[in-house]
Design a protein around this nucleic acid. Structure first.
Length: 206
DNA sequence: TACCCTA
């Protein structure tokens, strides 16, 4: 009674009905200010090259637009690659912006800062990528190890990039792993509070 | 302040 769900036969990926994950190439376009495009490209294009190779997406940067202070950037590739590339570009852009702001704040006197300590917090949606909180701390893993935890089958955690980015494109990256298909989420966070924790936390404030 | 890459 074997069914053979969908192992790695290497034929077609039924993961997405009506969508070939292997040939699923999307394209996204965005514009980057001329002053910030350099930060994204980097010297000799090392930065953009790194982003290209890291994300695996095809990033095309058009020449300076005449009359517009922005550059057209086209990102094409698989959704995961596009997401990753976009995030990397966004991060670089933000970093550059912050750098410029910090530098400009120290040089010349701005007629804006008169009183108060708030320079310019016009951005309501602050902390765009301040997730900080990566995965669970190592302490959670060392909860209790009587044996070699034979419960978890696969131990392939090759997602260093996602951790660094802290984005929610994790499920997409799974597709990039040659369609492993198995262990998409598994029990990442085991019941760390299965034992003990009875009279320990009575009043414990912290 | 700019950094200029690859199809």
């Amino acid at each position: 009674m074997q069914h053979i769900p969908l192992t790695s036969l290497g034929q077609s990926n039924p993961t997405f009905p009506g969508l070939d994950a292997s040939v699923a190439t999307s394209s996204h376009e965005l514009t980057i200010p001329n002053d910030l495009i350099g930060c994204i490209i980097g010297r000799q294009g090392t930065k953009i090259n790194e982003i290209r190779q890291m994300s695996g997406a095809q990033i095309k940067i058009a020449g300076a637009t005449d009359g517009s202070a922005v550059r057209h950037v086209t990102i094409s590739g698989s959704p995961a690659s596009i997401s990753l590339a976009q995030y990397l570009i966004s991060a670089s852009l933000e970093m550059a912006k912050l750098s410029i702001q910090a530098a400009s704040s120290s040089s010349s006197g701005n007629p804006v800062d008169l009183s108060l300590s708030f320079p310019q917090s016009a951005s309501p949606a602050s902390t765009p990528s301040s997730v900080a909180m990566l995965a669970a701390p190592p302490s959670a893993i060392n909860v209790h190890s009587p044996q070699a935890m034979p419960t978890i089958p696969s131990a392939h955690y090759a997602l260093p990039v996602s951790s660094l980015l802290g984005m929610k494109t994790v499920p997409l990256l799974a597709v990039h792993t040659a369609a492993s298909g198995l262990t998409p989420y598994t029990a990442k966070i085991p019941t760390s509070a299965t034992i003990k924790k009875s009279e320990r936390q009575k009043f414990a404030p912290y």
